[in-house]
Amino acid sequence: MERRHAVREYTDEPVGADAMDVLRAQAAACNAQSGLGIQLVEDDADAFGGCPTHYGRFRGVRHAIALVGPDDPARPASLDEQVGYYGERLALTATALGLATSWAVLHETTEHQGRWTIGAGERMPAAIAFGHGAREGRPHRSKPEDELGAVEHGSYAQAPAWFRAGVRAAMLAPSALGKQPFRLVLLADGRTVRAEALDGLQPWIGLGIARLHFELGAGGADFVWDRPLG
């Protein structure tokens, strides 16, 4: 989590076969667990398929993760949150393999020159570029710890160590324009954590990412979420 920084410019160096095998296996595991339809775009001259990005200029993107899944029009946030959670699992896997990554929100994803498949009733809220970065990424700014984490009845200073460790990990979570539109609240029972999406750009994708970071930071703590993912 500490090594993962957004990189938007990539070299032509190919991603090794062993690394691609690991990423394919991880994508398949995420799909099996979540019901998503995540797809890898491999060694393509334009892995974004000509789709414009919502923000940020990308160069040399030859590999990407297309985060596709079934969309419930009545609950659009559900897919976004799952995409954030499982997409970040893949981004951290790529980071562990020594690769650079960056989240991207694309426009016109149904007009993508055959790079991925979006079936009936599906949507692609985001993608992740990956490969060998042309330069090092930089750490992003974060809101203060006690703004991202809170205790339902009491002060944040009274929060147990596992909760604070989870919040510190969530501080490292990427979000649209670095705005971190989420909050993690320890409820009165001292064991249940509420994950809240706040106003902002792609807040539910950001919340899904933050949930994964929190889980990793909290380690084996005996806590439960107040609601299932998605």
Rank of each mutant, 00 (worst) to 15 (best):
A104C: 14
G49N: 02
E108K: 12
R211D: 01
H153D: 10
A218P: 10
A17H: 13
C51A: 07
D189A: 08
G35P: 07
V185C: 08
Y55K: 05
S175F: 04
E9I: 13
Y10E: 15
I209V: 13
E81Y: 00
G137H: 10
A129R: 00
V185H: 05
G154T: 13
G69P: 15
A28I: 07
D80H: 12
K179G: 08
H5M: 06
V193R: 00
T95H: 01
A47D: 05
R123M: 09
D21E: 15
A94Y: 08
F58K: 03
F214C: 05
P125N: 14
G119W: 06
V83C: 10
A32N: 07
A32G: 13
M1N: 00
A165N: 10
A159D: 04
H5C: 12
E152I: 08
R138H: 13
T117N: 00
A64V: 07
V185Q: 07
D44L: 10
N31M: 12
T109R: 03
G217F: 08
E2F: 14
F214E: 04
G37M: 14
A94V: 09
M1W: 01
G206T: 00
V15L: 15
L201G: 02
P174F: 10
K179P: 03
G98A: 13
T95C: 04
A25R: 14
A64D: 08
V61E: 08
Q180H: 07
M20W: 15
Q202Y: 09
N31D: 15
G133P: 05
G178Y: 13
M171Y: 08
A197F: 00
A120S: 04
V185Y: 03
R164Y: 01
A29M: 11
V105D: 02
L187D: 03
E2G: 05
G149R: 02
A74E: 15
G56Y: 05
G220A: 14
P203M: 12
M1G: 00
W225K: 03
V68D: 00
G200N: 05
E81G: 06
A120V: 01
M20F: 11
F48H: 02
H132V: 10
H112M: 01
A188L: 02
H54F: 13
G50C: 10
F182M: 15
R3D: 07
D12M: 07
A100M: 01
Y86P: 01
A195F: 10
R57E: 15
H153M: 06
A120E: 09
T109K: 01
E13H: 07
A94E: 07
S142P: 04
G131S: 12
A45T: 12
L229D: 03
E215M: 05
G69N: 10
G137Q: 07
W225D: 03
A170R: 03
D46P: 04
A129V: 05
A100Q: 02
L79G: 04
V167R: 00
S78E: 15
A77V: 09
P203V: 02
G49Q: 00
F214V: 11
G56W: 05
W204V: 03
G200C: 05
G219M: 06
L67C: 12
D72F: 04
E147H: 06
Q113F: 06
A157D: 15
G178S: 14
F182H: 14
A126E: 06
V185P: 00
R138L: 12
A176Q: 04
R59Q: 13
R8I: 07
P14K: 11
H5Q: 06
D80S: 14
P76T: 12
L177D: 08
E147C: 07
V22P: 02
H213M: 06
F214Y: 08
R138V: 13
L172V: 12
